[in-house]
Nucleic acid binder design. Sequence first.
RNA 1: CGGGACGUAGCGCAGUCCGGUAGCGUACCAGGCUGGGGGUCUGGGGGUCGCAAGUUCGAAUCUUGUCGUCCCGACCA
Length: 492
Amino acid sequence: MSKEITSRAADYSQWYNDLVIKGQLADYSAVRGCMVIKPYGYRLWENMQAALDKMFKDTGHENAYFPLFVPKSLFEAEEKNAEGFAKECAVVTHYRLKTDPSRPGKLMVDPEAKLEEELVVRPTSEAIIWNTYKGWIQSYRDLPLLINQWANVVRWEMRTRLFLRTAEFLWQEGHTAHATKQEAIEETKRMLDVYADFVENWMALPVIKGVKSANERFAGAEDTYCIEALMQDGKALQAGTSHFLGQNFAKAFDVKFSDKENKLDYVWATSWGVSTRLIGALVMAHSDDDGLVLPPKIAPLQVVIVPIYKGDEQKASINMKILPIIKELKELGISVKYDDSENSRPGWKFAEYEMKGVPVRMAIGARDLENNTVELARRDTKEKKTVSMDGISLYIKSLLEEIQQQMYNKAKQFREERITTADTWDEFLKALDEKGGFVSAHWDGTGETEEKIKDMTKATIRCIPLDNLEEDGHCILTGNPSRERVLFARAY
RNA sequence: CGGGACGUAGCGCAGUCCGGUAGCGUACCAGGCUGGGGGUCUGGGGGUCGCAAGUUCGAAUCUUGUCGUCCCGACCA
């Protein structure tokens, strides 16, 4: 990377960190590589959870919870999966502390309390879950088994970034078992569609659905489907994955069922997950220099009302006008905060709520009382408008919908402008360096070529789009024949 | 684990080169004038300068060690 690009990347990192921290979403914690999600950020996550959870239930899934710890022997049962995660596992080896004789008042690990078998802190839960499924599945009548869990996982990454890659993170992981391969593949794709639907329609972030190359595939999967989003610095971000696991885990954990003909077979599996990383995606994709810009459908707070007044008398008359409006807004299911605190002045409040990305701000003062108006400001465009108080609630409701749609359109346009078709190596490099974003190019299908391209450019194959057209061409690097284009990008 | 930067009041920083017992902005507390984009005035509280050892009459400042954080790499579905 050139010096300029390096420093630009550093600036972008700084911009991103500031947004997360000043936007009140999260903070660094005392634990290296971990973060504290603050109440405002957690409300955002709760809103995302609620929408996703409903979608999971609408597609027939149920929630359950499995242990945080995975005995090492279980963890290593599916070898590819274990190998893929081995380098980033936190491991519990002892179960007791004792006072340290050499340091008064301090504690040490009690060497007498060594566990007979180490416990791996789950980096993902396939192992413990499939070990459990073994006891739950005997017959085709037990299938499909459609379970989701909301949990935390730990992956001891060398380098971390708020939300995008932390040592511990929150997510959901779905784990399903099916009688046929066909049904499992359908489930894999169905959940990919659920994710795409959620990210596009709730987070206002367009995604590309595709399948991963072998190099990028989930450890232990037959196929990894993914949704890829584009950030404002031109780098791609994997927003969610859905894996077709074949019979790998069923075989590793000996999960068999009797079909209608009483024949024994291994079940077919899927797993799928999205995490708090989505919050990072949200921040990177929509925010501007004034702070966060949150899509109305998941914003912790959709409308903030700031009164502007001199003295108690004016305040009282504003209250009289505003309280019924607040009631109306709430009845329409809109979350609203009336910030009449005396601690800070209107200008300060404006800036504060902009930083936090509240989609709509309503200001009301003496001038408005005379004219029966309020001032509405929308966060995404920073446009301000004075509108009549009559029918204001319905007006705001439609404004929120408009903001949601416009945020999506803007992000989509941004992405469309950054999908480049490259037919030569020069075009490929030029697109990556000057424009960023996705580069659609032919590839000879080998892992070696993919690896070489990664070494030379830092770009990886983000996915092979599901809606790809067949097209004869030649690999961008080797010139070998290719039948379809894949999407390359530098990624988070 | 390599390269770089940095640890001084809740937060952001100056002071370190050239040693003399700690300062600015902001936030906080009390009160006044204010109030349509981060107001203003007055008064006040808060820091053993990351930690440890050394040099010195004297260390935020010099030396050595150590711990930690961030950025860039390596690593990462």
